[in-house]
Design a protein around this nucleic acid. Structure first.
Lengths: 185, 185
DNA sequence: AACGATACGGAACGCTTGTTCCGGTTGTCA
DNA sequence: TGACAACCGGAACAAGCGTTCCGTATCGTT
């Protein structure tokens, strides 16, 4: 691989993350190319289609969040780690139009692309099981509704641009709903 | 107004509700016209723009839901009425791509168009206040997070096509989070 | 029945998009 | 340094969209 090709690949990835994150999936390829300072042809040499480029961005973000989940699992107590990661995902999704779009339009493709150990789903499940074993999340709660609520919060946070105060208030309700009656409040 | 014009207006509204509801805002005008059995020009004689047509659909839906809220307020106890209406809105939004889009892309315009007494926001607020006065919803909960959670549930329910079981499980968590600690469970 | 006003249909326009393609440029290695 | 392969930029293509426009058909009235 020629050195200028490497440099352009890095520029494209950086520009794509910035533009897609801000404007969502509907951002034109031309806008990404312009931000990267390259022609559209240069993007298409590395990524066969727009969706491939966007998947690269989404997969990378999932990988980073999964790493954060592992760090939290070691650094915090079970209940705190679970709730902190839940809030972290929502916070991360709030200003990023692309991830709401990802949950929306290409959910299946993304899941297929992230079938490895790097997905958010696995990270959440690990933290959930630990928190339930510690008695800090209600036993009868299961993964489907956790993912449903997490998706819901991410979508609404992005679409309505939740500020920190609103995010806190909304997540407080959800977390309260996940806490056993005997739990601290 | 000529009789054929009236008939075509009714056909257009019916087709628009069906197509927009199913395919969302991105449904082409040509598809609506075809479903109605008219030409696109006929739609544009009644609605100056695509957004005007779509607003007519959304406003009508809000009016119907607001009516349901009033009926619930009279027929059910405060707490039950509030939770039932919350669930009803989510259920109604689940199969309707357009209403998630409405919350998403044109939220401001829709709010401006429904500034009257027919909006969902007012209906929710009325039911919330009654439920809190009856001690069936936590006092410290306020409208912003209620609307945030309602939006979140509607968006995710539509995007992920929640079935009834998942809707029940997810809303159970939220409702549990809204219920006072001393409340029944 | 006939005529004017009204409404209809759908081709055409202008715009934006993803993607392709090729003449020209740049990096690499003998 | 020179030559070849790899790579680049951006014009061009095809498809889809909202919207406009006008010749034609239909309705209501006399």
């Amino acid at each position: 691989m020629r050195t200028d090709a490497q440099r352009n690949l890095a520029r494209v990835l950086s520009a794509a993350e910035e533009v897609l994150t801000r404007d969502g999936l509907s951002a034109p390829m031309r806008a990404i190319a312009a931000r990267a300072g390259v022609g559209v042809g240069t993007i298409y040499r590395q990524f066969p289609t727009k969706e491939a480029l966007y998947q690269a961005i989404v997969v990378d973000r999932q990988r980073r969040l999964a790493e954060e989940a592992r760090a939290l699992a070691e650094a915090a107590e079970p209940g705190a780690a679970f709730f902190a990661f839940f809030a972290r995902v929502v916070e991360d999704a709030t200003p990023k139009k692309i991830f709401a779009d990802a949950l929306t339009e290409a959910g299946i493709d993304v899941k297929a692309a992230t079938a490895g150990a790097h997905d958010i789903r696995g990270a959440v499940e690990t933290l959930l099981v630990r928190a339930q074993q510690a008695g800090e999340v209600r036993q009868e709660v299961e993964m489907p509704e956790i993912l449903a609520l997490l998706t819901a919060a991410c979508l609404a946070a992005q679409h309505q641009n939740w500020d920190e105060a609103l995010r806190t208030r909304a997540l407080d309700v959800i977390f309260h709903g996940l806490t056993p009656l005997s739990g601290k409040d």
